[in-house]
Simulated scan of single mutants.
Amino acid sequence: MCGACPGGTTVSPTTAELNRTGRKRQALAELRRGLAPGCSLSLMGDGWALRRRTGRQDVFADVEGLLVALEAAGADWTGAETPRAVVGRLLTRPA
Rank of each mutant, 00 (worst) to 15 (best):
P94H: 04
A61R: 15
E30M: 06
L70W: 03
E71F: 01
T9Y: 09
A80H: 10
G88N: 13
E71G: 14
G22W: 06
T21P: 01
T9K: 11
A27K: 02
E81I: 00
C2T: 08
A49V: 09
A95I: 14
Q57V: 10
G55L: 07
T21E: 06
C2G: 07
T82K: 11
E17W: 00
S12L: 01
V63D: 00
A61C: 08
N19S: 12
G88F: 07
S42Q: 02
W48R: 09
G38S: 08
V63G: 00
A73V: 03
G3M: 10
M1T: 15
R25D: 11
Q57I: 13
G45T: 02
Q26A: 14
T15D: 12
Q26G: 08
A16F: 03
A4I: 06
A36I: 04
C39W: 04
R51Y: 01
L18Q: 00
S12M: 02
R53Y: 09
F60L: 06
V59W: 02
M1C: 14
A85Q: 15
E17Q: 12
L50G: 01
L31Q: 00
C2R: 15
K24W: 07
T15M: 14
A85G: 10
R52K: 11
R51G: 03
V68S: 04
R52H: 08
C2Q: 14
M1S: 14
P13C: 04
F60P: 02
G3I: 09
T15C: 10
S42C: 01
